[in-house]
Design a protein around this nucleic acid. Structure first.
Lengths: 168, 168
DNA sequence: AGATACTGGACTAAGATAGTCCCATATAGA
DNA sequence: TCTATATGGGACTATCTTAGTCCAGTATCT
């Protein structure tokens, strides 16, 4: 099935950690403004420090995380976790890549003329992306029991008999 | 974004070609029962022959394609294209892999206890998979303008303002 | 028998991935 | 000002995956 890299998974853990904010700061209040150092994050997530450093650097270059240099510096979310989407997170770590090569902007598909799939995977990709834009970092931190994804098909569904309505 | 490999893309082209069946056979009728040789498929899809041979071998081992050996042999779909799902196609070429490593059956995630994402990606993965099970090979051959995918979030949507109802 | 065509597997080159390390730079506080 | 603490930028390596090719074996039709 479709895969995201380990680093993306780690990166998500880091973001969730930052969203939880200053756990361990004074009176244990959750405060996403609180600066966490890379070491804080590494011990909090149990990931290796060099890996965490690398990923935080990446995140700081994106618009999801801000950084403060120097002693007492660190990292914090740049925006409210509810406004950061899963799609944005994937963009940071995997780039704006597409489900197939021939659907990225700068690679011309030399088979396109006779391509019998007519870009179906690309359309599916856009559908998935749209769905991921509806999932926020806050959701990732406190996920519902399931993410009921429905109707990629664009038609009345024949096969579906999954979740009853009204859960979540 | 989430990616499928080139080979999966090629494999889909091959399946679509087989679904179109005996184009070029007598009176041009579409007949998915018609046996196509690897060379037929290669010239029909403009893919390299060795690659097509490799992929057809893979497909023949799955339950999607049947093969007949010997002179006048070849490959044909084993089932009606409307009953073959995009999820099954991905399974053949990418294996029953998951969006993250720690959600496959035989790899234990040593971070699971403290994993702050609580398996959110895995849940998203199941959602995507469910949606892909609603897309048939027949759909891939004649895709709608878009695959409107909705509501991965499990809540009322805040951000959505995409496709108007009633298209497809 | 000979031609056709699938079967199984080996093999290679190129690229992506995961992880580590080093040095430069910025800041707070003694 | 000096020092400790942190981030910033990037190089580097081992390993795995991917894409693509090729060959020897086997089945079947004419």
């Amino acid at each position: 099935m479709l895969r995201i890299s380990k680093l993306t998974d780690y990166g998500t853990m880091i973001l969730v950690h930052l969203a939880a904010g200053a756990r361990g700061a004074k009176e244990g209040a959750v405060n996403p403004e609180h600066l966490c150092s890379a070491s804080d994050v590494a011990s909090g997530t149990r990931l290796a420090l060099p890996t965490v450093q690398k990923l935080l650097k990446l995140l700081a270059r994106s618009e999801l995380v801000r950084s403060v240099r120097g002693a007492e510096g660190g990292y914090a979310l740049a925006r409210n976790p509810a406004t950061i989407t899963a799609a944005e997170i994937l963009d940071v770590f995997e780039g704006p890549l597409s489900i197939t090569e021939c659907s990225t902007a700068d690679s011309r598909c030399e088979l396109e003329d006779g391509c019998p799939t007519g870009g179906a995977w690309q359309k599916i990709n856009r559908g998935i992306r749209g769905a991921l834009e509806d999932i926020s970092l806050a959701d990732l931190a406190h996920p519902p029991r399931e993410f009921p994804l429905v109707d990629l098909s664009g038609r009345a569904s024949r096969l579906r008999q999954r979740l009853p309505p009204g859960q979540g």
